[in-house]
């Protein structure tokens, strides 16, 4: 089965098994997203990619495209709701862009720019999330984690190491590593792992190089995130 549907009035073709976001991105229609990654099974947790299908809210990364669907995406109301979600993510963690090595290469930041987020709006939670600097090559800064599960999925499905998992529940959900000590150094994670490179924010930082590309010339400094067909690939190349 393949066919067409419309998104914001634009006709988009799809092939069988494609989700709305896959068909849209392939057609050059940007839908904001954070936990979606073209190489991984849809997850549907960040909810940034929520669109309205025939008037009903649904995550476009998990909803299969169907012929003659009427999809709304780039509307002021939906972008307003998405902006609120990015604000929730900003207050939930400790996102201090000026000191972050990933600034300019960060999908959360770039998505917030795209949505015109001028402040985090809510009171900051200021959670305590100590960094893990134990590993010789990789620094883990949990302060920036948005719980998208991409490292969890990459380590499980690509690296076959199950090095990461989400633990806890609700607002206390947090990322853990596969070691009794809780330290990354005591896992089999290496710099070659996919998991180390899929993070859409700045949890995983290489220790051996930093600020290789100066601020101002980074991925989303050059073009807004909406101008990339595959923003994940663009930041992973860095």
């Amino acid at each position: 089965m393949s066919g067409r549907f419309t998104i914001d009035g634009k006709i988009v073709a799809f092939t069988e098994g494609q989700t709305i976001i896959q068909a849209a991105l392939a057609a050059g229609v940007y839908i904001p997203h954070l936990c979606y990654h073209p190489e991984f099974k849809p997850h549907g947790s960040c909810k940034l990619c929520t669109v309205k299908v025939d008037g009903r809210h649904t995550a476009s990364c998990t909803m299969l495209a169907q012929a003659d669907m009427v999809v709304e995406s780039n509307t002021p109301a939906l972008n307003d709701e998405r902006r609120t979600l990015t604000q929730m993510l900003f207050v939930e963690g400790n996102h201090f862009c000026p000191s972050c090595e990933k600034s300019g290469d960060c999908k959360l930041q770039a998505t917030a720019y795209e949505l015109g987020m001028m402040s985090a709006h809510y009171d900051h939670f200021f959670p305590k999330r100590p960094v893990d600097a134990s590993h010789p090559d990789v620094l883990l800064d949990f302060n920036r984690c948005i719980l998208c599960s991409l490292c969890v999925r990459a380590s499980r499905d690509v690296d076959r190491k199950n090095a990461f998992a989400l633990c806890g529940r609700g607002i206390h959900t947090h990322l853990i590593v596969n070691a009794k000590s809780g330290r990354l150094a005591d896992t089999d994670v290496t710099l070659q792992d996919k998991a180390v490179h899929v993070c859409p924010v700045g949890v995983f930082l290489r220790k051996d190089k930093g600020f290789n590309v100066p601020i101002g010339r980074r991925v989303f400094d050059l073009k807004p995130i909406s101008a990339y067909v595959d923003a994940s690939a663009a930041i992973e190349k860095e």
Partner: peptide, 15 residues
């Protein structure tokens, strides 16, 4: 600026 909007560098002490 960042400090007015989210506490910025001084707010790093909140940990």
């Amino acid at each position: 600026g960042a400090c007015a909007i989210n506490g910025g560098l001084p707010a790093q002490r909140n940990q």
